[in-house]
């Protein structure tokens, strides 16, 4: 079984992503929303629109798809909390996605983390180490580690193994509540093996970042990795199913 924890239902592309996922043998996938459509400061109305579109897209593929609720913590706290609860009250949403609206060291994350802890739901957070400079509020793995230490009972999936690289794995190595998804950038060889050896296969989950990437190339990272078949099964689905309860 394969569960892809990181696909995006960008506007007008959800059906293409779902069709390609199914064609590539992906049994279950998450839609993370059109999280960059409104830049790094989406208003609450825009956030709600993105989540409503995710809801509609998930419903069309509910037999194999769930969604994550997208939030901008810089919006008014009571509205952010209300939107988080609105989404997580629906079976279509099984966690929260953060992109680049707020650096995750900010205390504006706290009310959201408290909701996630209370509901035992995951946070999937964008992260990258960029030598070319990052967006003004973008979080890197050291920021994710800070958040994870402040909220050790919240399950965090740090996105983009191939964007955070070896340094990113090291940053979160001692944060047992952080898993890493394998998406991001090109199909760089050796990173999956490094992560498995350093933090254990139990903390790695498969993600493609489709349609920013192709399923075939991103699946190849796991299929070709020099790891055991049981470790491959953990990465392809068992870890994600445990984290998501799905």
């Amino acid at each position: 079984m394969i569960l892809d924890i990181h696909t995006h239902n960008f506007k007008g592309q959800a059906d293409a992503v779902a069709t390609a996922a199914i064609a590539h043998g992906i049994d279950r996938f998450l839609f993370l929303g059109d999280v960059l459509r409104y830049g790094d400061q989406a208003t609450q109305e825009q956030i709600r629109q993105v989540n409503n579109e995710t809801l509609a897209d998930v419903r069309r593929y509910y037999d194999r798809c769930r969604g994550l609720c997208f939030l901008n913590p810089d919006n008014a706290t009571e509205i952010v909390v209300e939107e988080a609860k609105r989404c997580l009250d629906m079976p279509e949403f099984i966690g929260i996605k953060m992109e680049i609206c707020t650096n995750c060291r900010s205390t504006r994350m706290d009310p959201i983390m408290e909701i996630l802890e209370e509901r035992n739901a995951i946070l999937l957070h964008h992260s990258w180490y960029k030598a070319t400079g990052k967006h003004r509020f973008e979080s890197d793995p050291s920021d994710i580690a800070d958040l994870a230490r402040r909220f050790p009972r919240v399950k965090i999936v740090m996105a983009h193994l191939c964007g955070v690289g070896i340094r990113g794995v090291e940053d979160v190595a001692d944060c047992q509540n952080v898993s890493i998804d394998t998406s991001g950038s090109q199909p760089e060889a050796g990173l999956v093996e490094y992560a498995v050896e350093r933090i254990g296969a139990e903390r790695i989950v498969y993600g493609s970042d489709a349609p920013c990437r192709t399923f075939g190339a991103q699946l190849a990272k796991i299929r070709e990795a020099d790891i055991t078949e049981s470790q491959r099964r953990l990465i392809f689905s068992e870890n994600a199913r445990r984290l998501l309860g799905w």
Binding site: P187, A189, G216, A220
Partner: peptide
């Protein structure tokens, strides 16, 4: 493929889709 920087089968997957 850009092996060994990249996993070799990733490029092949592009011809098999």
């Amino acid at each position: 493929s850009h092996a060994p920087f990249f996993v070799a089968s990733a490029a092949l997957s592009k011809l098999q889709a």
